[in-house]
Design a protein around this nucleic acid. Structure first.
Lengths: 224, 224
DNA sequence: GGGAAAACTTAGCTTCGGCTAAATTCAATT
DNA sequence: AATTGAATTTAGCCGAAGCTAAGTTTTCCC
């Protein structure tokens, strides 16, 4: 399918999709949530949502929020596929550090032709996961399931496997990589700090060290 | 250097550079020439040239045309470098057919980060020529010299080496590749047709065939 | 159930980079 | 030197996508 949408519209669709996907249950996404995610004013979000509605990519009910239509979801997934394939390619083929691939992919995703998409996917062996453990949508729009539990949800003494990590903050990524918290790693929750205090964890590889993770960090790690 | 210019401005700078480069002697480039090259109205070109002048990237004299400043040339060369490195990379690393790399590079060139540029250049061994034989500007703005003689300028019986071919028309490229006229090939001008008629050439590799090239085709091939 | 606060939309403005139509300037020929 | 035709610029418009400020709605709490 050819994307006839502008980069800005694609960003909105992607944002709505991400918010829907992260939400515990289905339902419309608020204008503010979209605006915040994109770093844009609420007024701008309203305008674009109205436009996307008129294009049939979104169903927007004033004051109620918006939901992707099938057509809108299809485009969103295509952009996400571009993004994650690019991240994977940049990391594997070009050796771009894993905390930087996100920013690169963010611009390239809007410009990747179908031919290049296919070529890259084939070269990588049609991967299902990107370097941060996020599922890569298939060409048909299928999307591998992913866990919704974060490290922060873990209880004392629990052992979990890291499935994916949030990729939008390079600093978070660098820190997590530094302490060995990467997709596939085994982590043990040694002890929860008081209320919102740090979480103490031990990474299987480095059984000697106990690392303290802030809530922000622990919530950037999904486990299974 | 970081490009703070918009893609549109970069396209104008690149167009001016290309026209200056192709011109037999130095001097300002006409508004119309720029407009035609970009497929844009003359009024649009006037506006952008005025803006580029106010940014110090171009010196424009009303009704007289425009010339790149050093700053403008630097940006133009950087975009050209992006373009040609990308063409080379797409062809070599991703196996994109040589008649299609131009179109892909045309969008990617505006979005290539410095890091990726360096990475790609290093992976390719800092090439000096792209797949069509065009020189790739260095990071310092240096540019290998290139021939201005086309196959069309050749006389009866002359033997020449193909240095580069025009890359903007996929059909031309496919045809030239089909008859073996690619950078590095040896070609003999068997006979010039009447006035603007076809040029008959023999390609060294395939000494049995004589190919007829229209003027348009013969002028899309530079030789040395 | 009434208000205040929060969420959302509307109105109106800005910048970009196009466009057409109407001047204007330049060049070339008579 | 005047005139005509080509090249160029000016004027004014458009659509994207952003913004702020000023309304509306909705929600939530007492």
């Amino acid at each position: 399918m050819v994307l006839t949408t502008t980069p800005a519209a694609q960003d909105y669709l992607k944002a709505i999709h991400a918010i829907e996907w992260e939400a515990p249950e289905p339902g419309p996404v608020s204008t503010t949530a979209v605006a915040e995610r994109l770093g844009v004013s609420a007024a701008s979000a309203t305008n674009m949502l109205k436009k996307l509605d008129s294009m049939g990519l979104v169903v927007q009910v004033p004051y109620r929020g918006a939901e992707l239509t099938d057509a809108g979801r299809k485009i969103a997934l295509e952009v996400v596929r571009h993004h994650r394939l690019l991240e994977t390619y940049l990391a594997e083929a070009l050796g771009v550090p894993w905390d930087e691939v996100h920013a690169e992919a963010e611009v390239l995703e809007h410009v990747l032709s179908e031919r290049l998409e296919d070529r890259i996917a084939a070269l990588l062996g049609n991967p299902e996961w990107d370097p941060h453990g996020h599922p890569i949508p298939g060409k048909d729009g299928s999307m591998p399931a992913a866990s919704r539990r974060t490290l922060w949800d873990g209880g004392d003494g629990e052992r979990v496997a890291v499935e994916r990590v949030s990729d939008d903050d390079p600093e978070v990524l660098r820190y997590l990589a530094g302490v060995g918290v990467t997709p596939g790693a085994e982590v043990e929750v040694v002890r929860r700090g008081p209320v919102a205090g740090p979480l103490f964890v031990r990474v299987a590889d480095r059984a000697d060290d106990v690392e303290a993770l802030s809530r922000e960090l622990a919530e950037a790690v999904w486990v299974s």
